[in-house]
């Protein structure tokens, strides 16, 4: 399967030469295998996603409904194409359906078109701690620590595994990241994955002033990846205030301090990774 990074920024898109090296679009990643494609999150990066030839089916898997993960939906052409069969998979809430919650954004005054008026054939799937299949992909979703219903995904295809947890604070608590697998949020998703895309919005120093916001520092992201035995970590959900030079500086510092075997890097828009 081929993973393509379309959006790496957390919170809000940025548009500046100072952030363009890593990219300014909010969360979006595609996973392709043959004619099948998964779109992970609908941040502004979804504008750059095109559908594979020969299929009218579009699957969008949302980790949660915070704005930086759905703001691109209203500008995604397949939603306005009556020939497209669009499936949106997103975490269930205890009180309201996915349709009701998505409709808060896809309705006036925030958006001119009601979700009920979208021309595509739209199917909404409320998911939780779920396992499901889409074409050649086996997908597991699990709730993870982040404000509001939020899941991460583990996608398996042809023996390769990628895990996607862009908004996650597994170190929340007085003792930080615990050293027991069953007490770690997201462990099952990331365990022994070939590739983990994980939240790393803050530096350690920044994180100390933002505990409970639902995000990780780069150091915790690396710790989680090492503990779960992933082969490669791509840190994502970059803070909008982190410029190209700052991110490069952070990465160089992390590399200089790191003594383990983990292969880690910062996610960058436009890169593609082939797994399996």
């Amino acid at each position: 399967m081929k993973i393509a990074i379309k959006g790496v920024r957390g919170s809000i898109p940025t548009s500046s030469p100072e952030t363009s090296f890593f990219g300014g679009h909010t969360s979006c990643v595609t996973v392709k295998e043959g004619d099948w494609q998964l779109i992970l999150d609908g941040g502004s990066g979804i504008q750059k996603v095109s559908s594979p030839e020969g299929t009218d089916r579009v699957d969008i898997l949302l980790t949660h409904l915070h704005m930086d993960h759905i703001q691109g939906l209203g500008f995604f052409n397949p939603l306005f194409d009556p020939s497209k069969e669009v499936h949106i998979w997103a975490p269930a809430s205890a009180t309201q359906s996915l349709r009701v919650r998505l409709n808060r954004y896809l309705s006036p005054p925030l958006f001119p078109v009601h979700i009920r008026d979208l021309p595509c054939k739209l199917t909404l799937h409320d998911i939780s701690n779920s396992s499901f299949e889409i074409g050649p992909f086996s997908i597991v979703s699990r709730f993870v620590i982040h404000p509001g219903p939020t899941v991460g995904f583990r996608v398996t295809c042809g023996g390769a595994v990628m895990a996607y947890i862009p908004d996650h604070e597994p170190a929340l608590g007085p003792k930080g990241l615990l050293n027991e697998a069953k007490w770690i949020s997201g462990f099952d998703l990331a365990e022994n994955a070939d590739l983990l895309l994980h939240d790393a919005q803050f530096t350690q120093e920044e994180y100390m002033g933002r505990i409970g916001w639902g995000h990780s520092c780069m150091e915790d992201s690396i710790r989680l990846a090492e503990f779960t035995g992933v082969k490669k970590l791509l840190m994502t959900h970059h803070d909008p205030l982190h410029s190209n030079s700052k991110l490069k500086e952070f990465l160089a510092l992390l590399k200089s301090k790191h003594t383990g075997q983990l292969d880690f890097d910062l996610a960058r828009e436009g890169i593609e990774i082939e797994l399996g």
Binding site: V144, L172, G173, D188, E191
Partner: peptide, 18 residues
């Protein structure tokens, strides 16, 4: 290894603070 549900993990983290 299967990890505990988030609701259990968060209860532990809360208990750790009390």
């Amino acid at each position: 290894m299967a990890s505990y549900e988030i609701e259990i993990i968060l209860n532990r983290q809360l208990a750790d603070c009390l």
